[in-house]
């Protein structure tokens, strides 16, 4: 019994920490730089599909058969997403800032359509299966398998957290903060604001791609429906509730919101009659949307931010 709880616990934490990586990416873009990305799901999807295509065995249903070792797939997923972000950023960052919101939203819609319709490349609506999981050989021992996965993702989150903390204290991070707080002053000091923004956007996108690849390799199966706007919304809610601007807030927000999500989801499965479950899940999303608005209204710095730090652009 306790083994089941432990292995569920490690499964829960692994999922939540994969979200934490997405939140760290979004925090770099929004919290640190003030770039408003509403296409998170698209970037996550690119990372997941690139890694899946590169690492899966050959299949007639989609492009593949490269059979790369999974860490290489993760790296490639992150790199491809960073490149994609660079393109999207180059197109929009020079324009009025709120155009970025609309363009990234459209980007995510377009990516989802590509995943759905370019069947020879992506497997279409059926998705991609047989994605190699780390510690595949332990799959028949759930506890060890779960703890192994957790160890990988926890180490990654720790490394990324320390790296990002360092980065925001570095000269690069200070310029980013200066641009966010007062762009004119930063420009007057001779800093190329557009280039710094683009770098932050690409790096944040790369983190989202990495997070997407990690999620794909833990579930072993991906499909276009995993990358709907709901995902974008979840990640945003995690960051805002955790406290945007703070890396610690991003991670705690992911854990907190995922815990709420899993708990209410579990309660729905356990207590709501089968024919009403779809409706109850809709109510679950509505409650999270309401929660996001309430935090924005009442506690704009989030629940776990280090200091009061209103989200700003």
């Amino acid at each position: 019994m306790s083994e089941a709880i432990l292995s569920y616990g490690s499964f829960f934490l692994t999922t939540a920490l994969a979200y934490a990586i997405l939140c760290l990416g979004l925090n770099l873009q929004w919290g640190k730089t003030g770039l408003f990305n509403v296409g998170v799901a698209g970037f996550v999807g690119v990372g997941a599909y690139v890694s899946a295509i590169l690492t899966t065995p050959w299949s007639s249903a989609h492009l593949g058969g490269f059979g790369l070792f999974w860490p290489l797939g993760w790296l490639a997923g992150a790199a491809a997403t960073a490149l994609m972000s660079l393109l999207v950023g180059a197109l929009t960052l020079r324009l009025r800032q709120d155009y970025l919101a609309i363009t990234t939203f459209g980007f995510a819609v377009a990516i989802q359509l590509v995943l759905l319709n370019l069947q020879p490349l992506t497997g279409g609506p059926f998705g991609i299966g047989f994605i190699p999981r780390p510690f595949e050989s332990l799959a028949d021992r759930p506890l060890l398998f779960g703890l192994g996965n957790l160890a990988i993702v926890a180490t990654l989150v720790l490394v990324l957290y320390l790296a990002l903390q360092n980065l925001s204290r570095s000269p690069w991070g200070r310029v980013l903060r200066a641009i966010r707080e007062d762009e004119t002053a930063a420009l007057a000091l001779g800093k190329n604001a557009a280039r710094y923004r683009l770098q932050a956007f690409a790096l944040g996108g790369g983190l989202m791609g990495l997070g997407g690849a990690i999620q794909a390799h833990f579930t072993g199966f991906i499909a276009p429906n995993n990358y709907l706007p709901n995902l974008t919304f979840q990640v945003w809610t995690m960051l805002i509730i955790g406290g945007s601007g703070s890396n610690r807030g991003a991670i705690l927000g992911a854990l907190f919101v995922w815990a709420l999500w899993a708990a209410t989801g579990g309660a729905i499965t356990a207590f709501v009659p089968a024919e009403l479950q779809a409706r109850a899940s809709a109510l679950q999303i509505a409650a999270i949307g309401l929660g996001l608005c309430l935090v924005l209204l009442l506690r704009p710095g989030g629940l776990f931010g280090l200091r009061r730090h209103a989200a700003r652009g």
Partner: peptide, 12 residues
């Protein structure tokens, strides 16, 4: 831009 996030939440 906070309005945009809020409208996103309201939409959901």
């Amino acid at each position: 831009i906070t309005l945009v996030i809020a409208s996103f939440g309201a939409s959901m």
